[in-house]
């Protein structure tokens, strides 16, 4: 980003916030449902010192991180297995096409029944939802592995497992990272969705749902959503940077990935 673009961005953001502030104050005063941006920012500041809120954020992030870790651990090896055994890959493709259209949140009621422990329930749904993008990107990556690279190592006496480790895995890294980035935002969405519906749990979603049922202080709710957005932004930023770094050493041809 150039200096001028940054300055414009700052100005645009300030102008939008100011416009919202004036509109809200002119229309409804302080008591309406719509809080003014300054009120939201004040609430966001207070939440930083509120142990209940920071615990909720920690709980959501813990579920998110465990879920992502398990999803990567399941999806990447599964991708390798399915593309090395062709008959199995073909047969599993039908199952993937059958399961993937099910909106992951439709499984929340089922998960609420099956897993009595909220953490386990949330983690399972996060894993379920975030496995697909990583798996599909891994499968896609393995179809793109360069034949010449594989042949080269074969000529130099490398077996199938060594070729997978030294060629297929590293050349899949950029695609796997794309899958992880897509999954990371899906995982956050699913974690918060589940928390909205899981009574007696902790997490950002639970905090927001409780604030709503306790009479609805909208400034606190928007502040909570704002923090969720900041977290999402940071995660996405970190993963995008990782992807760029990887792309510098991995000039893989036609690198697009599957969104």
């Amino acid at each position: 980003m150039t200096g001028r673009a940054a300055l414009r961005g700052l100005f645009g953001t300030l102008a939008a916030v100011a416009a919202a502030e004036v509109t809200v104050r002119a229309a409804g005063g302080f008591s309406g449902d719509l809080p003014a941006p300054t009120q939201v920012l004040a609430a966001a500041g207070e939440q930083l010192a509120d142990g209940e809120f920071t615990d909720a954020v920690g709980a959501t992030l813990r579920v998110w991180a465990y879920g992502m870790l398990i999803a990567v651990g399941v999806a990447v090896p599964a991708g390798f297995l399915l593309s090395s055994i062709r008959a199995l890959g073909t047969a599993c493709q039908a199952i993937v096409e059958f399961l993937r259209p099910i909106p992951s949140v439709a499984l929340i009621p089922l998960a609420l029944l099956v897993f009595p422990a909220p953490d386990r329930m949330k983690t399972s749904l996060v894993v379920y939802a975030s496995v697909w993008p990583i798996l599909l990107n891994t499968l896609y990556a393995l179809r793109q592995v360069d034949r010449v690279q594989l042949d080269t190592l074969k000529v130099f006496g490398f077996g199938a497992a060594a070729r997978a480790w030294f060629v297929s895995l590293p050349s899949s890294v950029p695609f796997i990272l794309t899958g992880v980035r897509v999954s990371a935002s899906v995982a956050l969405i699913v974690a918060i969705s589940t928390e909205l519906l899981a009574v007696g749990d902790t997490g950002i979603g639970t905090y927001l749902a409780q604030t709503q049922s306790a009479g609805g202080q909208t400034d606190q709710m928007l502040a909570g959503a704002l923090w969720a957005g900041v977290i999402g932004l940071l995660i996405n930023g970190a993963l995008t940077t990782a992807e760029r770094r990887a792309a510098r050493w991995w000039p893989v041809s036609g690198k697009e990935g599957v969104a």
Partner: peptide, 18 residues
């Protein structure tokens, strides 16, 4: 750009209670 990036990052379910 910056405002849209932030809005895009807000997980939509976080806004449902609001």
């Amino acid at each position: 750009q910056p405002l849209l990036q932030l809005c895009r990052s807000v997980p939509p379910p976080a806004l449902i209670p609001f």
